[in-house]
Simulated scan of single mutants.
Amino acid sequence: MKYKLITILSLVNLHCFADTNTYTGSGVVIQGEANVTNQTLFSCEHGRSRMSPVGTKSSYQKQYTVPAEVLYEEKYFAADLYNECAEITPSALSDVQISNVPIVEIDSNGEVITGYIFADNYFELYVNGKLVGVDSVPFTPFNSNIVRFKVSKPYDIAVKVVDWEEHSGLGSENNRGKRFHPGDGGFIASFSNGTVSNENWHAQTFYTSPVYDLSCLNEVGSQRLSSECSTEGKDDSIHAHSLHWDIPENWKTSREYLNWPKATVFTESVIGVNNKKAYMNFREKFSGKGARFIWSSNVVLDNLVLLRHRVE
């Protein structure tokens, strides 16, 4: 019996190893969950919050932070537009004191721009490489933010967006009757000078999970495609893999993003915001201004996405 058990385990390990070897793309494949280094970045007394763990996954000489390296603990928070945890819950934009939002100066002789942002789940916004604001809630409850910055045209917007995970390194959460169910992301923003998130932005993914069959992955040019991969929930994560790509150090300012794929647009119903007051209470400043929800090509499995856009 002991010999048979060892043989079975060996066959499982060989199967997993062989499965990994079938992948020939540019990402680094790592199987299994992460080593959790922080059980949760955030907890909320006034709203339903999920654990927001941070962990690391290693392969050979490389180590990746999952779901992403973030500045959350530095507390450079953008002003709250709607945040149950801070008990800021205006029912309309008329209840928001926009003049109280601090202005981040990019150019001393520039124009003051006001931006409205809703991210599922987390964002960091940079303008010309300078940090403008960090999402005040990394996971849930869903919130929205308002930013102001002073800048001259042309300028570059860079956004790090993260779909957080309850199970670190597995891109999944306990949801819809399954312990390991992949969540979905989404980002929408509009600015007072008419700039809106849409299909003209660029988006590149740097962390995809969970992937149970590596043969579903494909790359076409700079596109890192996982549309053929299953997004169904599971009761276990035994064969879950994650894919990782190194983030360029100068991603916030480099023009290399022009080689990234264009962002994919998603409807409000796909993102599922009809019951989210953080969005619906201010819908006129989002879709009402022509902004669209954007992400990489896979809003479910791609968990770390970088966005770039130039405002002329």
Rank of each mutant, 00 (worst) to 15 (best):
F149G: 03
K153E: 04
V134N: 01
V162I: 15
N143Q: 10
Y126W: 11
L125H: 00
V151F: 14
L170E: 15
I157L: 15
N145Q: 12
H167R: 09
P154R: 05
R179W: 05
V151C: 09
D120A: 10
V134F: 13
V132T: 05
K178C: 08
R179V: 08
Y126A: 08
G171N: 15
Y155V: 04
S152D: 06
N175E: 13
S144V: 12
T140L: 06
S144P: 11
L125Q: 00
S136Y: 01
I157M: 14
N145D: 08
S168R: 06
E165M: 14
G183S: 11
F123H: 13
N145A: 07
N128A: 14
V159W: 02
K130I: 14
F139A: 09
N174V: 06
E166C: 05
G177N: 08
N174M: 06
N121I: 03
D120R: 09
V132S: 02
S152K: 12
I146P: 03
V162K: 02
K130E: 10
N128W: 00
I146R: 07
P154Q: 07
N145V: 00
P154A: 09
D156M: 13
V147T: 13
K160W: 12
F149C: 03
F149S: 04
K153G: 02
E165H: 11
N175S: 15
V147D: 04
K150M: 10
P154H: 07
S168I: 03
I157R: 05
F123T: 00
V147E: 06
H167W: 14
D156F: 01
R179I: 08
N145S: 15
K130M: 14
R179G: 02
P141K: 11
Y122Q: 00
E166A: 10
W164V: 02
